[in-house]
């Protein structure tokens, strides 16, 4: 096939036949899609289409009824996310996420938020606490490295001058970016962003687009994005998956999606007279 697309050639994330029902309500119905490294994959769809549910399956907060979620690492290891506990999905399989309603540690400082994200690494460095309590090992130097990584991401997200402030005191737009910085501090292979532009003004969402493009070009990771702001989606994504009522109705490049009649029907509704004629 000559027109094979990048995400089909070398997918990092491969979702096959994902199905999840809450009682009688089928939230996700036989969903298949792929996502490639160094690409932004947007999942769009009307409200209640099941986008966040897909994210919750990917990050282990829900267990799907059926289907396979495979994540391929560079070293050839393949992780089946549907079988893993949520904290292992982050620290073994390297999947990080943000939340639709921001979930920062509001009572802790910005820097502390980013250090909590490096918990696994630092915990080992501290000799599971006991070592560091007894003054063994090089915990200090490891902590310094962790702070450097945190500062790198704070500079990328333009928050470095607020490192010692409480996360809850930041303005809304900064909190959104801090959540992304915190997710990036876990050094993920797949970054799942749940409506990162929600509630942002045009200037802030422009900044966000730049940030995501920046991450895409600098890091070797795949970004998965749920977003309602079509200007952001069309501007930055390389690949769009459209879901409605838990089913995939379209999958392709932004240009293909823009012209897909099924997508237009889902978003704008169908003219009833033409429907009847068909």
């Amino acid at each position: 096939m000559s027109d094979q697309l990048s995400w089909q050639i070398d997918p990092v994330l491969d979702v096959q036949n994902l199905t999840l029902a809450f009682g009688g309500l089928v939230a996700i119905d036989d969903l298949c899609f792929q996502s490639a490294r160094r690409e932004i994959t947007a999942i769009i769809g009307p409200n209640g289409a099941g986008k966040t549910t897909v994210f919750n399956c990917l990050t282990g907060f829900y267990k799907p009824d059926r289907g396979v979620i495979a994540l391929r690492h560079d070293d050839g290891n393949q992780y089946h996310l549907e079988r893993m506990a949520e904290f292992r999905i982050n620290n073994r399989a390297s999947v990080a996420r943000t939340f639709q309603n921001i979930r920062l540690f509001t009572g802790m400082s910005v820097l502390e938020n980013l250090l909590v994200a490096q918990h696994q690494k630092l915990m080992k460095a501290s000799g599971m606490t006991i070592g560091a309590l007894l003054g063994l090992g090089g915990y200090r130097s490891r902590e310094k490295q962790a702070i450097e990584l945190a500062m790198h991401w704070l500079e990328t997200t333009d928050l470095h001058y607020r490192a010692d402030d409480l996360a809850g005191d930041l303005p809304y737009g900064d909190q959104r970016r801090l959540e992304i910085a915190r997710a990036m501090c876990t050094q993920p292979l797949l970054l799942c962003l749940d409506e990162p532009a929600a509630g942002l003004n045009p200037k802030e969402s422009n900044m966000l687009s730049q940030l995501l493009l920046n991450i895409k070009s600098q890091e070797k990771i795949a970004i998965l994005l749920i977003e309602h702001d079509m200007s952001v989606v069309m501007e930055i994504s390389d690949h769009i998956v459209v879901i409605d009522y838990g089913r995939k109705i379209s999958d392709g490049t932004p240009m293909q999606i823009r012209n897909d009649p099924k997508v237009i029907a889902a978003y704008l509704g169908v003219d009833e007279t033409r429907e009847a004629v068909k």
Binding site: N91, F99, L104, E112
Partner: peptide, 25 residues
């Protein structure tokens, strides 16, 4: 302990348990 990862994890747990789990704690 407060200044070690475990202490920060305790405080993070108080702040938001779901976020903790998403960060691999």
């Amino acid at each position: 302990m407060r200044r070690l990862p475990i202490g920060r994890a305790w405080e993070a747990l108080r702040e938001d348990e779901i976020a903790c789990r998403s960060l691999g704690i």
